[in-house]
């Protein structure tokens, strides 16, 4: 135990420094990359409107919007938690961001959790019956579904269930301007959530299934699984307590990375279903070259990747004790 602690202090310090440097690099990238986008806010805003700008006006506007605050200024603002104003909406970016965030969390969080659970359980069960018709059929089917991009699943679901059958609303996160009781509001939100959620689950869970099944196939051949069976343990305990527990690691990695890309990940699906999440905000901001908004979202999502990787380190140690002792 003592040697364990002794080893971990410098290694933890190293970890903090590494992650700090990575965060700094990401802040710089979030500052510089959106500026490299071709086109600018003034052109996109006024080229499509009826307002005709004189040359001086245009020059003045352009000078205002392309003003270079400098990276130092950007950093200082960042530490003051002052994210600035959106060019297009003229509202503080934080307002814009935090009004969209819950919708994204709801959609992607649910999609990830559901697809992880379904993928894991189906993967474990399929791997437990190697070469059976069920397993072969599932692997084939999942590989095909995995190949369909979410943009086509989304459109198909939209056309079939929203436009043709009209079982589900085609757009939005809730019915606008409706005065609803809490219960009815939940139902309404769920109703709106169904199609984008289904699209995302269909996009995510075949990957989870295939990953789980593959790592399970490795694990079920391990001697300790045979030993567990020999101990006369019930099938569920052998399958999940012994085998699947060891097949969990790759899936956790995948889950973590999915969470990290949550902020931007649903861009396509949110756009198709006009869902009021961060993806839609980002999509609109890019269209009008609303640089401060792009910067904010890029920054938040990249920092989230970092934080989740850091979190995964902790989770790994809990799942697999061998990692804690690895050099």
């Amino acid at each position: 135990m003592i040697s364990n602690l002794r080893r971990s202090v410098p290694s933890r310090l190293g970890l903090v420094i590494t992650f700090g440097l990575a965060a700094l690099a990401m802040i710089y990238l979030s500052y510089s990359l959106p500026r490299l986008l071709p086109g600018d806010f003034v052109t996109t805003m006024y080229s499509s409107s009826n307002v005709t700008l004189t040359a001086e006006q245009e020059a003045a506007l352009r000078a205002y919007y392309t003003e270079e605050p400098g990276f130092g200024h950007y950093l200082v603002k960042l530490f003051r938690l002052d994210w600035g104003f959106s060019y297009a909406f003229l509202t503080p970016i934080s307002t814009l961001f935090f009004s969209a965030l819950p919708w994204t969390l709801l959609l992607l969080g649910t999609a990830n959790v559901i697809s992880m659970i379904i993928g894991f359980v189906s993967g474990v069960e399929a791997a437990w019956r190697p070469n059976s018709r069920l397993e072969k059929g599932m692997v084939g089917g999942m590989t095909i579904i995995e190949g369909i991009p979410e943009i086509s699943t989304g459109v198909i679901l939209l056309v079939v269930f929203a436009l043709k059958l009209q079982w589900f609303p085609a757009a939005g996160g809730e019915t606008a301007y409706a005065e609803l009781s809490l219960y009815a509001w939940f139902a309404d939100v769920g109703h709106h959530l169904a199609l984008p959620l289904a699209t995302l689950v269909l996009a995510y869970f075949p990957g989870n299934f295939l990953l789980t099944r593959n790592s399970m196939m490795m694990v079920i051949k391990a001697p300790f699984v045979t030993t567990a069976r020999a101990k006369g343990l019930c099938a569920r305990r052998v399958r999940y307590g012994h085998a699947a527990r060891n097949a969990l690691l790759p899936l956790v990695t995948r889950f973590g990375l999915r969470l990290a890309f949550m902020v931007t990940g649903a861009l396509v699906v949110e756009t198709i279903f006009s869902y009021p999440g961060l993806g839609t905000v980002l999509f609109n901001a890019i269209q009008v070259r609303d640089v401060p908004v792009i910067q904010a979202i890029v920054l938040v999502s990249s920092l989230m990747v970092l934080m989740i990787i850091l979190g995964l380190e902790v989770v790994y140690r809990m799942i697999d004790p061998r990692i804690a002792n690895a050099h």
């Binding site: 001697p223 300790f224 030993t227 006369g232 012994h242 060891n246 061998r322």
Partner: peptide, 25 residues
Amino acid sequence: LLNEIRWERIGMVFQHGAANLNPVH
């Protein structure tokens, strides 16, 4: 029925030693 006999009436040490212990428990 086998599960009632396994370990209860027949105990076993498998070959390959430590590989028979689950690494995460």
